[in-house]
Design a protein around this nucleic acid. Structure first.
Lengths: 136, 136, 136, 136
DNA sequence: TTTT
DNA sequence: TTTT
């Protein structure tokens, strides 16, 4: 229900190898810059590339996937939400950082996607999976 | 990872009370028609409303929410994927039905949303929740 | 082609009346803060509301709609892209601002939507329009 | 304003060369089947690929891009809306077809995207264009 | 700070 | 078969 009201999707390239941090509770965090490119032809007929940079953060399983399957340059997709944090600088000023908190990662190319395929974690736990959804 | 490649979002009205079915394993299914409306002014300056109808299916927890909080006429949002099933008619012909398999429901209006708020089911199970994500 | 790689959707409330600016060329800009709310029940069973704030910018026709139909408190949806601008402070430091550049606005409630319905092909004015897209 | 309430995104492969039709008014239509794949590991630890098929239709400029840059097997993304049409068979029965009406196409790989980059404000031709949107 |  |  959360991601409906605050939903972001980016498709582009990992700008640096994801920086992995292990928190006290054993929870993993991945952080990296990501570039999205837009291509268009301007009024003078020149082909223009416009790049936007984003700070991406991911937790838990999503951080695992990023750690294992992505590196600087990887083409990926990311879904998540926008979050602006504030912090105080040493000299007492307030600053803001806007980050994309990713909860899904798409590895471009089906090979990578297949390798990274994880056991599903369905909403409700059924020991025996009915095939109702599958044969739909 | 699934919903990136096949992703649908509808905002509109429930056309009939969701029909709830309990499957053998205790799993719940909700089915209902949903209308999405588009408004525009045509070339003659007339205001036009164009309605599209969709067959929505939801499972488990999402079906619970639909059962409890929606009825004919409810304004909701739905996120999920498109799935076309085929079946064979009595006289041996193949037919297709396209359904929206919903995995998220948005109840319009914040009151409904608050009532329906469920315990989070985070990707990885931590007994003690760090507040790391909160203050991000 | 642009909004695929850098795509944001927010549903929430206008935090302040949109501030309208007219640029030299006659082009209009609207700026306003927007809140998105997330509702969930925490481990202690408490209902929590978590609010994120976003700076939204809109141009041209989208700014027109915002000016006419929204005010502080309005419930709206916004689609667009994320853009981080940098600027230099008076004392020579570089700062970053992340904004949501909106290209679509959704007025919640069908009444508002109908009132605001504009001739299609909205970005630029074309006198004559085929209805080919309608009969798809 | 339309695509907010009825919005689809597919990332996958073109199943057949797009079939191009020219309508009376000179307007172009492209039609093709598109596959989206989902990868996951089932309870038995087997890697499963699940494929969904979609009928995609595109008009005008979007059809142009599909005609020029895609063929059977191309990896593309598509954004648009869901539309269910009904028609009557020769023997007088009503049938339904659900199609994805695409208004954006994403060519995977930045090379293709750059080649296909078109002048902005694509829906209709405007001679003069301000660059106001760029400096947002 | 990415990619072609 | 919804909503205003």
């Amino acid at each position: 229900m959360s991601n409906f009201r605050n939903h972001v999707q980016l498709i582009g390239n990992v700008g640096e190898d994801p920086k992995i941090t292990l928190l006290d509770g054993g929870r993993k965090v991945a952080r990296f810059p990501m570039a999205t490119n837009e291509y268009y032809t301007n009024n003078q007929g020149e082909k223009i590339q416009n790049t936007d940079w984003h700070q991406v953060v991911a937790w838990g399983k999503t951080a695992d996937i990023l750690e294992k399957y992505t590196a600087k340059g990887s083409e990926i997709g990311v879904q998540g939400k926008i979050k602006t944090r504030s912090y105080t600088t040493e000299d007492g000023n307030q600053r803001f950082v806007t980050e994309i908190v990713a909860d899904e990662v798409l590895l471009m190319g089906s090979k990578a996607a297949q390798e990274a395929s994880e056991p599903k974690t369905p909403r409700s736990k059924s020991t025996k999976k009915t095939s109702a959804k599958k044969d739909a």
